[in-house]
């Protein structure tokens, strides 16, 4: 189910090919350019952690990747196909799931109605509910509660549940750990790693580097709209501290 991206083939043959690829992407808000040529590749079944200080352009990168924003230059490829300029709803239907920063839910819908919205991606409601409630029993207890009245962490779980249930080809997570207790964060990253093993490509944006580096296969450091370094987590430690403390 995860291979909904056009042209993507599951199996070992294609695994060398990145499922998600950004090439020379630049993006701007109004007249202000915030991404200056970003290159990123997330191989199939890999977790890439995108790290960097506040305002580096991480969220913007996610917006471009998920189709909410169109790059002013550069290309976005999914499974080799050029998807630059394809709308977010189209990508979502083809198996790209995005959990946006801090507002991944519809606050005036109930938990159940929120989950129903996930069915646009082509999975049926029973499946979504089964997965969501199994993963987060807490949501099961609160299915008729209006999502806006959930606690902050529960809201984040709900947003994440949607991502898990759809069984995505590409998963984009923006600040997953925001508002979650340390225990839950650990547990969620365990799940992230598990999903990746099913062949999903995952791009995680984080500010707290520590936990995510434990599960990431690759890490990229972004500063001022540029990717400063990409590599195995162990390789980029130095870059990372440099990025945060402004060397």
């Amino acid at each position: 189910m995860s291979a909904q991206i056009p042209g993507s083939r599951s199996g070992a043959a294609s695994s060398s090919k990145p499922l998600l690829e950004l090439r020379g992407v630049t993006a701007a808000y109004g007249g202000i350019q915030v991404l200056h040529g970003v290159d990123l590749e997330v191989p199939e079944g890999a977790v890439l952690a995108l790290l960097g200080p506040n305002g580096a352009g991480k969220t913007t990168t996610i917006s471009v990747a998920c189709g909410l924003m169109e790059p002013t230059a550069g290309k976005v490829y999914m499974a080799g196909a050029d998807v630059t300029g394809v709308g977010a709803e189209e990508l979502a239907r083809r198996g790209v799931v995005t959990v946006p920063e801090g507002k991944g839910i519809f606050p005036n819908l109930t938990v159940k109605e929120n989950l129903l919205m996930a069915t646009y991606a082509g999975v049926d409601m029973d499946h979504v509910e089964a997965v969501a409630y199994e993963q987060f029993p807490r949501l099961g207890e609160r299915r008729t509660q209006v999502a806006g009245t959930l606690s902050g962490g529960e809201q984040q779980m709900l947003a994440m549940a949607r991502g898990l249930a759809v069984n995505p080809a590409v998963l984009l997570l923006d600040e997953l750990s925001m508002g979650l207790a340390p225990l839950v964060v650990e547990e969620l990253y365990g799940i992230v790693a598990r999903i990746a093993r099913t062949g999903t490509s995952i791009l995680v944006v984080e500010q707290f580097a520590r936990t995510v580096l434990g599960v990431a296969d690759l890490a990229a450091v972004m500063v001022n709209g540029r990717v400063r370094a990409v590599g195995r987590p162990s390789e980029i430690e130095n870059e990372l501290s440099a990025a945060y403390f402004g060397v």
Binding site: N54, G102, E175
Partner: peptide, 8 residues
Amino acid sequence: ASGLDDPE
């Protein structure tokens, strides 16, 4: 502080 990076 959620949403702030480490130095911030």
